[in-house]
Design a protein around this nucleic acid. Structure first.
Lengths: 109, 109
DNA sequence: TTGCACTACCTAAGAATCTTATGTATGTTT
DNA sequence: AAACATACATAAGATTCTTAGGTAGTGCAA
């Protein structure tokens, strides 16, 4: 996926997935995004984990660490505050998409 | 406009406008984008001018300075190389948009 | 049984691309 | 005359990626 374009929308992707699918752990998010987009979007871990930590720090996500046999996973969920953030983010994304359509589909004026 | 989301698509916007409208100068580009998007997208000059210089440096744009009365303007045009770059950029944008639609419109799985 | 791929977490250095602030200068309107 | 618009530009700082590395458990094939 074009890294330049992804820039800025990772938070929206994370929050939307957690909103729709309930709690998820980081690695699961990377796989889900790959699945949904048919390999077009691949979230790198170097981008994902710092984002998750940031969103948790802001109170947009909450986290719960669970033991799975001998290893552990950190399950993230969207908070109430996160839900209202998501609404704003989706609105912004809609405006952005519409604007890009306008610019990229307009012919000579 | 949401600055985060714009991040990465400014070059595409510039090149697409120059492709469609022929030569334009920087300030004109900012106004055109405002017009097309109904004020939703406002390109800041701090972002625009460095981008124009970068694209010119890469040979994607060519520039011609003209005197307009007592002042000057720098008119930018897309080069042949720029045209092929644009094709790639539009393709990438299409993939990005499709992917975002998939992620943001998918419900519970 | 060893080594490779996958799962699962993490961080740090560096690159890229914005915002905000500032500067210069001319043109136009009130 | 002052304010706003046109028109160029740069610099410091913030943000958000990539790339590259690290740790460690799991499962399978040579």
């Amino acid at each position: 996926m074009n890294a330049k374009l992804l820039r800025g929308s990772l938070d929206t992707i994370i929050i939307k997935l957690l909103n729709d699918h309930g709690e998820m752990y980081g690695y699961e998010i990377t796989q889900k995004v790959k699945d949904i987009t048919g390999e077009e979007v691949k979230i790198t871990e170097g981008a994902l984990y710092p984002s998750l930590h940031k969103l948790e720090g802001k109170g947009i996500l909450s986290v719960e660490t669970r033991s799975i046999g001998n290893r552990f996973r950190k399950y993230y969920s969207i908070t109430k505050e996160g839900k209202s953030e998501l609404a704003t983010m989706l609105e912004d994304m809609k405006i952005y998409m519409n604007s890009m359509e306008l610019i990229l589909n307009t012919k000579l004026t």
